[in-house]
Computed example of a mutant assay.
Amino acid sequence: MGTSSSSTMVKVVGANGQISLGKQYAGRQVLVEEREPGVWLVRTATVVPDNERWLLYPQAADDLRRALDWAEANPPDDADVEQILTRLGDGEG
C-alpha cells in the first residue's frame, strides 16, 4: 500500500460536467461515492469482472499454478496422435 496523505485542490467542473484529476490518473478506473449532495469521495479502484472473480480465491490460484507447472513440465507432443485418435474414435478414454 502507498502512503496516505491529504491535500485539497480546487478544480472547476467544465460545461460538460467533467473534472480532470491529472494525467497520472489517465485511463484508471475510479469509484465515485456521493456522501451527501455536493460531497464526493473519489478513489482509484481495480474492478474485477464477475466472470473472473473466481481467480481471486486461493484454491483457484493453487489449481491454476499446478496446471501451469504441469503444462511446463509436459510440453505438447504429437508422437501418439494416431493412437489417441483411434482410441477416441472407439469411445475409449
Rank of each mutant, 00 (worst) to 15 (best):
K23I: 04
T8L: 14
R66S: 08
L55I: 08
A60E: 09
Q24A: 11
P37H: 08
P76Q: 08
R87W: 12
V30E: 02
S6D: 12
N51P: 00
P49R: 07
P75V: 11
L21D: 05
Q29G: 05
W54A: 14
V39S: 11
Y25K: 00
D62Y: 12
M9R: 12
Q18A: 09
D78S: 12
L41W: 03
G14R: 04
R35P: 03
G22I: 10
L68D: 09
P37S: 07
D77C: 06
G27N: 01
D80E: 15
A26N: 05
L68Q: 14
N51R: 06
K11C: 03
D50K: 11
L55T: 14
I19G: 01
V13F: 05
R35Y: 09
D69K: 04
T46V: 13
S6A: 12
W54S: 09
D90W: 05
L41E: 10
S4I: 14
R65V: 09
A67G: 13
R66A: 12
G93T: 11
L56A: 07
A67K: 06
T3A: 14
D90G: 00
R28F: 13
Q29Y: 06
D69Q: 15
N16A: 07
S5H: 13
D78G: 15
D63W: 12
D80R: 06
